[in-house]
């Protein structure tokens, strides 16, 4: 069962964690923005109930910081015009709340494979700023009752199969190194 929230300790696990940050660093962010727009508008269209759970946090700016990627993601979860934008860390973007963890830690939490509180207890997840917005987002995503990875892959057209396999492989590698 995928309930462990302990950090990988072996050196190779550490290298695996940081590899994407180095490998993806040269990618210009403007190339990612259409993909992120596709992701957030697709999720909003398919799961409108998610926004009801956010309440007043719909108007908050939430910075999602996957520590092993060379960029962070700025989310505005407005029901009608949600946005998800890649931003460089050195650029100080205004935000109300920030959540930090490795990419796969964040994905596993969203997918319902790992418990957010347990990740917080082990310090694998860091929270700053407006805690209410983070808690609302976490609970809203947890009610989606789907795997975000599967959901995205299913709507990625000809890339569906490859995307799903890649994400599953990455999650598998992560668990095998816990």
């Amino acid at each position: 069962m995928s309930i462990s929230a302990s950090s990988p300790s072996r050196p190779c696990a550490s290298r695996l964690r940081t590899l994407p940050r180095i490998a993806l660093a040269p990618i210009p962010l403007f190339l990612l923005q259409p993909l992120l727009r596709f992701i957030v508008t697709g999720v909003a269209r398919r799961h409108p109930a998610l926004f009801n759970r956010l309440g007043s946090s719909q108007n908050k700016a939430i910075l999602i910081d996957p520590t092993n990627l060379p960029f962070a993601l700025l989310l505005h979860p407005r029901p009608d015009t949600p946005t998800l934008e890649a931003v460089r860390r050195k650029k100080k973007v205004p935000h109300d709340a920030k959540i930090t963890g490795t990419f796969l830690t964040l994905l596993d939490m969203i997918d319902g494979n790992m418990d957010g509180d347990a990740l917080f207890f082990t310090r694998d997840l860091k929270i700053e700023g407006d805690t209410e917005a983070i808690v609302a987002l976490r609970n809203a995503l947890d009610d989606m009752d789907i795997s975000l990875a599967d959901d995205l892959a299913a709507h990625a057209g000809p890339l569906s199969g490859a995307l799903k396999k890649s994400l599953r492989a990455l999650q598998g590698i992560r668990r095998s190194h816990q």
Binding site: S2, I3, G112, N113, M114, A118, D142
Partner: peptide, 13 residues
């Protein structure tokens, strides 16, 4: 009740 699906699944099981 404040915990996630992952907690519920593991603990109930």
């Amino acid at each position: 009740r404040q915990r996630s699906r992952a907690y519920v699944k593991a603990v109930v099981h």
